[in-house]
Computed example of a mutant assay.
Amino acid sequence: MLKDLVLKNRTYRRFYGEEGISRETLLELIELARLSSSGANLQQLKYIISNTPEKNQMIFEELKWAAYLKDWEGPVEEERPSAYLVMVADREIGSNIYWNHGIACQSILLGATEKGLGGCMFGGFNKENLKKKLQVPDRYEILLVIALGKPKEEVVLEDLGPDGDIKYWRDEKGVHHVPKRRLEDLILDL
């Protein structure tokens, strides 16, 4: 059921780093994005695949992990992602990406969840450094990075408290808590 898949598709930041992800699996996930809707059918999204320790390290160094967890620098080496997909827009095809990257990310992450994997989307990273490290030609703009791996952490959804604080947090056992607004709080009966 789709709802079950959506509920399992959480943002994971700690993984079983020794569990690799094959290029074939990454291509299957990109195929889901390729088959998804694209604004004006431009299809200008392209992907840089990383599933080797050396390339993964280059990408990891440029990411900004979990802004709300002020005392956490990111996962320790053995809990780092096994793979990354760096999503870029080909500006020679079109400059307006519409909502394409969001649709593509959701397709990729739902596909990863179905395969027993998890991921984390990054909009916070040093774009210029990453572009240089990966030698990305000027025609491409890096939009975001998707980290992928076998999840090592538990993520729990809970109702937003009366204080309205939306910041995620970890308890003393390392369980990651994510406050969510109630459905009735999202509906405008005008």
Results as ranks from 00 to 15, higher is better:
residue 49 I to H: 03
residue 62 E to D: 13
residue 62 E to F: 04
residue 94 G to S: 05
residue 44 Q to W: 08
residue 55 K to V: 09
residue 111 G to C: 06
residue 78 E to R: 15
residue 83 A to R: 13
residue 62 E to M: 12
residue 108 I to W: 09
residue 82 S to A: 14
residue 80 R to T: 13
residue 94 G to K: 02
residue 88 V to R: 15
residue 48 I to P: 08
residue 51 N to Q: 09
residue 93 I to H: 00
residue 90 D to P: 03
residue 54 E to V: 01
residue 101 H to A: 01
residue 95 S to F: 02
residue 96 N to T: 04
residue 84 Y to H: 07
residue 76 V to P: 08
residue 51 N to C: 14
residue 86 V to I: 15
residue 69 L to Y: 10
residue 81 P to Y: 01
residue 76 V to E: 14
residue 79 E to P: 10
residue 50 S to R: 06
residue 99 W to F: 00
residue 107 S to C: 07
residue 68 Y to H: 13
residue 108 I to A: 03
residue 100 N to I: 01
residue 59 I to L: 11
residue 100 N to G: 00
residue 61 E to N: 13
residue 83 A to Q: 08
residue 87 M to P: 03
residue 46 K to R: 14
residue 107 S to N: 12
residue 102 G to P: 01
residue 57 Q to W: 02
residue 104 A to K: 04
residue 80 R to Q: 14
residue 98 Y to L: 00
residue 69 L to K: 12
residue 61 E to H: 13
residue 102 G to Q: 00
residue 48 I to Q: 05
residue 76 V to M: 12
residue 61 E to G: 08
residue 53 P to M: 06
residue 57 Q to N: 07
residue 102 G to L: 00
residue 48 I to D: 05
residue 43 Q to K: 05
residue 60 F to W: 09
residue 76 V to S: 12
residue 46 K to H: 08
residue 63 L to P: 06
residue 88 V to P: 15
residue 46 K to N: 10
residue 57 Q to G: 05
residue 64 K to D: 11
residue 57 Q to V: 01
residue 85 L to A: 04
residue 81 P to L: 15
residue 106 Q to K: 13
residue 89 A to Q: 15
residue 86 V to L: 10
residue 82 S to F: 13
residue 43 Q to V: 02
residue 106 Q to H: 10
residue 49 I to N: 03
residue 64 K to A: 09
residue 67 A to D: 15
residue 54 E to T: 07
residue 89 A to H: 10
residue 76 V to N: 13
residue 54 E to G: 04
residue 110 L to A: 07
residue 70 K to R: 10
residue 96 N to R: 06
residue 55 K to H: 08
residue 57 Q to D: 08
residue 87 M to I: 14
residue 47 Y to S: 01
residue 83 A to L: 11
residue 84 Y to S: 05
residue 103 I to G: 02
residue 82 S to T: 11
residue 60 F to K: 07
residue 106 Q to F: 03
residue 100 N to W: 00
residue 56 N to H: 13
residue 60 F to V: 08
residue 95 S to Y: 02
residue 68 Y to R: 09
residue 92 E to L: 13
residue 109 L to K: 08
residue 47 Y to D: 04
residue 63 L to D: 12
residue 60 F to E: 14
residue 88 V to A: 15
residue 66 A to C: 04
residue 92 E to F: 14
residue 93 I to F: 01
residue 88 V to G: 15
residue 87 M to Y: 11
residue 57 Q to R: 09
residue 92 E to W: 11
residue 45 L to F: 03
residue 77 E to S: 13
residue 62 E to V: 14
residue 79 E to W: 15
residue 75 P to Y: 08
residue 53 P to S: 05
residue 95 S to L: 03
residue 45 L to T: 01
residue 112 A to M: 07
residue 61 E to M: 10
residue 62 E to L: 06
residue 112 A to E: 06
residue 85 L to S: 03
residue 103 I to S: 03
residue 81 P to Q: 11
residue 45 L to W: 01
residue 59 I to H: 11
residue 91 R to N: 15
residue 96 N to F: 04
residue 105 C to A: 12
residue 85 L to G: 06
residue 54 E to Q: 07
residue 103 I to E: 00
residue 58 M to Q: 12
residue 68 Y to S: 11
residue 81 P to H: 04
residue 64 K to H: 12
residue 67 A to S: 11
residue 75 P to S: 06
residue 58 M to P: 03
residue 60 F to H: 11
residue 75 P to L: 07
residue 71 D to W: 06
residue 52 T to R: 04
